[in-house]
């Protein structure tokens, strides 16, 4: 039992009623968190439909850290190689550029027009450090799974 706190849930449904994503998707936060107490939910696509807005966690009358639980469940899924292609792409941007949303030519030109910094030496140093750290934590290997 990784998160015994979940067992204090009395299924009131405040979490699901407060969920902005659950209005439009198959995410039922009450159900997925309850299920995670007894079974593996790594395969459930709903795990990735949470915007991590924290409404459920804030409003839970039992004070269960629901959003934090979702984050833990997600990292367990990632360890099993369950990574959505779009997320893998963002991770690769980080590895290649040190940023999750890289600077493109269009915005480089806009930056120049606005007189904003285009400090390539600093960005290069940042990228170098990021890659040393990502290798050190094993992140590159993790997202190749």
């Amino acid at each position: 039992m990784k998160n015994p706190e979940i067992l204090t849930c009395f299924q009131c449904g405040t979490c699901h009623a407060s969920c902005p994503s659950g209005k439009y998707t198959s995410l039922n936060i009450r159900k997925i968190v309850r299920d995670s107490a007894t079974k593996d939910v790594s395969d459930q696509p709903e795990l990735w439909m949470c915007t991590t807005c924290y409404n459920c966690q804030e409003r839970c009358p039992r004070g269960i850290k629901i959003t934090d639980a979702v984050l833990t469940l997600r990292s367990e899924a990632v360890k099993k190689g369950k990574i959505l292609p779009a997320h893998r792409k963002v991770c690769n941007f980080l590895i290649k550029t040190g940023q999750s949303i890289p600077l493109d030519d269009k915005h480089l030109e806009i930056r120049k027009t606005l007189g904003l910094r285009t400090d390539k030496a600093a960005w290069k140093k940042a990228l170098k450090d990021v890659n040393v750290l990502l290798r050190s934590t094993g992140f590159g290997e993790l997202i190749k799974r």
Binding site: V78, H87, L94, S100, L133, S136, T137
Partner: peptide, 25 residues
């Protein structure tokens, strides 16, 4: 400016993926 800063890193993805990598960056 914090000149040599890199990605914060973005909580939605990196915190979900691996807590230690997120904390380290």
């Amino acid at each position: 400016y914090l000149k040599e800063a890199a990605c914060c890193p973005a909580p939605g993805i990196y915190r979900s993926f691996d807590k230690i990598t997120w904390l380290t960056l």
